[in-house]
Amino acid sequence: MVSRLEALGLSLLVLYFAYHAFAGEKGLGRWSDAQLELEDRRAVLGQLEADISRLQTDIRRLTPGSVDPDFVEALARDKLAFVYQNEIVLMASDRSIAN
């Protein structure tokens, strides 16, 4: 039979490990937080990969020898505000309205 002191010691030991299993530095609470952070970072990674893919496509369209004239014209109109002589330009106070 187990004495009361041994039972108390064993109970305290079990409580100690149970506490650290749930609330410790590497416990279940931290694990669930790490899973949420992992999901957020995967979403950011997906966005960055999409941006990289888009930029690689733009680079291919601007590579000497295979320049896409329509893309160059679109860039000049968007970034440099180029227009043809016979075009009418409407100015908007908020840029988001024009897009």
Rank of each mutant, 00 (worst) to 15 (best):
93 S>Y: 00
90 L>T: 14
79 K>G: 02
62 L>K: 12
71 F>P: 00
82 F>H: 13
86 N>Q: 06
87 E>M: 11
55 L>V: 04
51 D>E: 13
76 A>P: 00
91 M>A: 15
57 T>F: 07
67 V>Y: 04
75 L>T: 01
63 T>M: 06
74 A>N: 02
64 P>S: 11
69 P>V: 09
61 R>E: 04
68 D>S: 09
78 D>L: 14
53 S>Y: 09
52 I>N: 06
91 M>T: 14
69 P>C: 09
83 V>I: 09
57 T>D: 04
53 S>H: 11
55 L>R: 09
76 A>Y: 02
84 Y>L: 09
56 Q>L: 07
72 V>N: 10
87 E>D: 13
89 V>S: 04
77 R>C: 01
89 V>H: 00
78 D>P: 03
84 Y>N: 10
66 S>M: 12
55 L>Q: 06
72 V>D: 03
63 T>P: 01
80 L>E: 03
62 L>N: 10
60 R>Q: 12
76 A>L: 13
52 I>C: 01
84 Y>A: 09
93 S>V: 08
68 D>Q: 12
51 D>S: 14
71 F>V: 00
55 L>M: 09
93 S>A: 11
79 K>P: 01
81 A>D: 00
73 E>P: 01
55 L>C: 01
93 S>W: 00
92 A>V: 14
66 S>F: 06
71 F>G: 01
58 D>W: 12
72 V>L: 08
60 R>A: 05
53 S>R: 15
50 A>K: 12
89 V>E: 01
56 Q>D: 02
64 P>H: 05
63 T>L: 08
73 E>G: 07
57 T>S: 11
71 F>R: 03
87 E>R: 13
83 V>L: 07
53 S>K: 13
78 D>C: 11
53 S>L: 12
86 N>A: 08
88 I>K: 10
52 I>Y: 05
72 V>M: 07
56 Q>K: 10
73 E>W: 06
76 A>S: 14
60 R>L: 04
93 S>D: 03
54 R>K: 10
56 Q>W: 02
83 V>Q: 11
51 D>F: 10
89 V>K: 02
53 S>Q: 11
87 E>A: 13
61 R>Y: 03
66 S>T: 15
63 T>A: 07
59 I>C: 02
61 R>G: 00
69 P>T: 12
49 E>R: 11
85 Q>T: 15
56 Q>M: 06
75 L>P: 00
54 R>I: 13
87 E>Q: 15
78 D>A: 12
62 L>P: 06
67 V>R: 08
54 R>F: 10
